[in-house]
Design a binder for these strands. Structure first.
Lengths: 335, 335
DNA sequence: CGCGTCATTGCTCATATGAGCAGGGAGGTC
DNA sequence: GACCTCCCTGCTCATATGAGCAATGACGCG
């Protein structure tokens, strides 16, 4: 396209989109036929000069969802828009809302739903509406009841999801990680625990999130691991954890010793399920999200726009520099 | 509007704007008549959920231009879009380009054009194309030749605008501010200077910028004022300078003593001209811009979107916090 | 200079969309 | 319970837009 046409197409776009003029009227103003105007507008669109955003907390990005499905082999994908977002908290909240919506509309309605716990899942439970299902049984798929500081968050999450869905919750009465392998095996063999694990393994759908391998890890908060432990895991290649198990970028267990002391459903069970839903949002979790998706830990991904684009190796349009806090006056001198 | 309809309108908008479906197709997907879909889309637009931006360096914001004309009594206004801008430098460059475009299309073509000087005007001169006019005479309207560090910028600006317009430039051979009133009056009475000032007063159009009253002032760079002088002016109410004269928020001269020692066209001459074009951009200049416009120093304003919105007391849509690079505070710099 | 090639232009016609109007139902009032 | 009002729905019809096609003209090549 010639430069003069490019400029014309911008003028036409201004009149069309900002002034609500018809192509015919624009033609009169710019002294063009209305067909030429139509073509200029088409060019402006094709060149990406026209950006249309849906600014709403519930807005999704369907084209990105399609690409996630097609290019990454996901069964389904939900991507919430980041347009007009006011901070990572809101992004998280939008994603949780979308997860709640997805659960609600999930067909067939799962008889038994296995869930992990954490801030994200808790938020999902909050966003669910009463009566979102008629009788779902919710099973925890990984341990972690007692040591958690905000005691009961894990239990509350499961109970709340079950209650609102007209069913009951089955909690996994065990810590997330044991110090000694023997203890872990002993607990695992206890009927109270093994029964829950069996139930978890038979769930028809799973809903879980993932944690980044950094200082904010809920495992550090809960006292199961120290910051140094996590650092060491990172050194070994960990990008984050899924249902308590630390994985590297390829989705492999990073530290088999640690993993053997971790109570909960094995990752392969998630991989085998036709409906394993991962809810992951936030810039800190791009790496885990990639690992989860590439190693097929989830068949359905619910995430935010930036995370989705990072999975597709695309730069985010919302990362533009802030024009009001400028770089320094660089005075170019006369040639 | 009911909440359920709001959500529906978002779903419809996604299908319409992102998936390019027709309203009829959307109706089939959402089980609505195509008229309902049309109304939902209209609602989404009316509620401001649909944001359409023209992302291009030459894009303008016509609705804002109209509001500037109507609400602030400007004869004309040009507002360049800030969409997708990469820093204040680019904003400045876009504005300068728009000023060059405006000059080029200005009718009647000015016989004599009075101009100030500075970074902005220099950039305007760079953006002008050869042959933008057929014989304009350019007159400097304020002094400042000798002391300027980047010697010749002022002269280069005038000469370049004149040359590209097929005419010649008349420079004002004097400093901007004199230390003693007597010296100023003596210079002013010198034929070489007074002749230029008369010519300047008779120009048919003016083009000027404005400086913020801060450490980046070109007067400090040039050595006419110290940083302390400027600070003192600010204490007295100065918001910036126009053609070398410091004004307060109401457009009044802040320091008559200083003003009397300043050489150049009086501000009332600008106010009296039917074509006095101010080119002002950048967040630092919001206050001066407001003073210039409110005191009718210009009949035409060329500026950026943020500045224009600040004049209209509107928050800028581009000021949203970047969720990925949170709250980085502006570091004030000193030369 | 003549000719072929290809992009561009202005058109016809089919389709998508918006304005305006009549019918119907929800909810309020007596 | 009857009636009335108002809003919403689904329609008809006018208008705006996009697809496809023939005519035009610019350009390069022999």
């Amino acid at each position: 396209m010639v430069a003069s046409d490019e400029l014309l197409s911008i003028r036409a776009a201004e009149l069309y989109y900002e002034e609500d003029k018809t192509q015919d009227e624009i033609g009169q103003v710019l002294r063009l036929t209305r067909w030429k105007v139509g073509r200029l507008l088409a060019q402006a669109k094709a060149n990406g000069f026209i950006r249309i955003e849906i600014v709403h907390p519930r807005a999704r990005r369907l084209p990105i969802e399609r690409r996630l499905r097609d290019e990454l082999g996901l069964r389904d994908a939900i991507v919430v828009s980041s347009a007009g977002v006011h901070g990572e908290d809101e992004l998280q909240s939008r994603t949780a809302q979308a997860a709640a919506d997805y659960l609600t509309s999930l067909r067939p309605v799962p008889r038994a739903l296995g869930i992990s716990w954490g801030r994200t899942l808790f938020e999902v439970s909050q966003h669910l509406r009463d009566g979102w299902a008629a009788g779902v049984n919710v099973v925890q798929i990984n341990g972690g009841v007692s040591l958690n500081k905000r005691a009961g968050t894990a239990a509350t999450t499961a109970v709340s999801i079950a209650h609102k869905g007209g069913g009951s919750a089955t909690l996994l009465p065990s810590p997330a990680i044991l110090e000694r392998l023997e203890t872990k095996e002993a607990i695992e063999n206890d009927r109270a625990v093994s029964a829950v694990l069996e139930l978890a393994a038979s769930a028809s759908a799973y809903l879980f999130s993932a944690g980044a391998a950094d200082d904010n890890s809920v495992h550090i908060d809960s006292g199961y691991l120290t910051a140094d432990d996590v650092q060491e895991l990172v050194r070994k290649g960990a990008v984050g954890d899924v249902v308590g198990r630390y994985i590297d970028a390829d989705g492999n267990i990073v530290d088999p010793g640690l993993d053997a002391r971790t109570i909960g459903l094995g990752l392969d069970r998630l991989r085998a399920s036709p409906t394993s839903i991962a809810v992951i949002s936030g810039s800190a979790k791009h790496a885990v999200a990639a690992a989860v998706v590439r190693s097929h830990l989830c068949s359905v991904l619910i995430t935010d726009e930036e995370t989705a684009l990072s999975l597709l190796d695309e730069p985010s349009p919302h990362r533009t520099a802030d024009p009001l806090h400028p770089a320094q006056h660089s005075l170019k001198d006369t040639p």
